[in-house]
């Protein structure tokens, strides 16, 4: 505020086209639908520009560098307004400028993705990494670590469509980091399936993890995987997205865990043969680590209890349980 009051005599009328808007981060947020954008545009339409644009002097640049009022300028340009009211502050130190911009944008940086994009934007605008780590990250509530900045920058490099998805689903930092280590082609292909299959945040993560491991294990590339007959058949079938999702998920799981899948199939077969009409449920440790079968049943009358006891005492039950245990 002190700076603004000192610079009051510098208010001038300038054509919006002559202003340097290179520090406009809000335009980068366009597809990301942050809270305040719609409201602001409605206000401008209703009342016009009520407060002056804020700018600073920049060495070697005849045009004032705008630091606040980007949307007003954009609106002025689109509304063909000749001049706008601009306050020009004296030149700012890098630290001061970056703190100003961060404080201004902080309320809109509400997901990991937009925070990543903002940090990337600052790097792109040649702000020093050290300044970003020490001054910007604490304002955004992030630990001031170089490594963390690098992770955010890696996230910012994810495919655009995926960034939008992660933003909409409010992906955590951990999830975003995990995705940022996957091959770009894989990410692009999977996010491209959204609509054909029902992609949720956890399913996206699961498919990326499992397919990436399959590719590495089998020395396969992304195209070869999605060209597999089974994958093509699933994605191309005339079924609803949720059916395709279930089938694709199962196929990927079987490919990623062939041993577990095969043992589970054997156990499921025993379950089907011995227990399909029994008044109890059979569960086993899906990791196959613990040799343990859990039998659960519920009763609502003495007769049901008798039936349950009879079923449990049945010779076939014992035989089935023994067969199942033998798979462990």
């Amino acid at each position: 505020m002190e700076r603004i009051s000192l610079a009051c005599e510098k208010i001038s009328l300038i054509s919006p086209g002559e202003l340097d808007t290179s520090l406009d981060f809000s335009s980068k947020l366009n597809p990301f639908k942050t809270k305040d954008q719609e409201l602001l545009l409605q206000g401008l339409e209703r009342s016009g520009i009520l407060s002056p644009i804020l700018s600073i002097k920049k060495t070697g640049n005849p045009n004032p560098l705008v630091i606040d009022g980007f949307k007003r300028i954009k609106w002025a340009l689109s509304s063909k307004i000749d001049t706008v009211c601009v306050i020009t502050l004296p030149q700012m130190e890098e630290e001061e400028l970056v703190v100003f911009l961060t404080t201004k944008y902080a309320p809109t940086l509400d997901t990991c993705v937009v925070r990543a994009l903002f940090l990337y934007f600052l790097v792109e605008k040649s702000f020093k990494h050290k300044t970003i780590v020490e001054k910007v990250m604490p304002i955004l509530g992030l630990e001031p670590h170089k490594g963390l900045l690098e992770r955010y920058l890696k996230i910012a490099g994810l495919p655009h469509k995926l960034l939008l998805f992660c933003h909409e689903k409010d992906f955590s930092l951990k999830r975003c980091i995990n995705l940022s280590y996957k091959p770009r082609r894989l990410l692009e292909t999977i996010i491209g399936l959204n609509g054909i299959i029902s992609l949720s945040a956890s399913l996206l993560q699961e498919l990326c993890d499992n397919i990436h491991d399959i590719l590495r294990r089998d020395d396969m590339d992304v195209e070869a995987f999605f060209e597999l007959k089974q994958v093509r058949d699933i994605l191309g079938m005339e079924k609803d997205p949720s059916t395709k999702t279930r089938l694709l998920r199962r196929f990927v799981w079987q490919m990623r865990y062939p041993v577990l899948s095969s043992v589970h199939a054997q156990i499921e077969e025993i379950e089907k043969r011995h227990f399909s009409n029994m008044p109890f449920c059979i569960k086993w440790d899906r990791s196959l680590e613990n040799r343990k079968i859990t039998i659960t049943g519920s009763v609502s009358s003495p007769n049901e209890l008798d039936s349950l006891i009879d079923a449990l005492s049945d010779k076939g039950t014992k035989e089935g349980i023994n067969k199942m245990l033998a798979r462990f």
């Binding site: 491991d213 590495r216 062939p258 041993v259 577990l260 043992v263 990791s287 680590e289 613990n290």
Partner: peptide
């Protein structure tokens, strides 16, 4: 490629090859 093999999480929170 060691992490790309089939692994399961044991009770001690460690990945191992499946028991078989």
């Amino acid at each position: 490629k060691i992490t790309a093999q089939e692994l399961v999480l044991g009770d001690d929170n460690k990945f191992r090859y499946p028991r078989p």
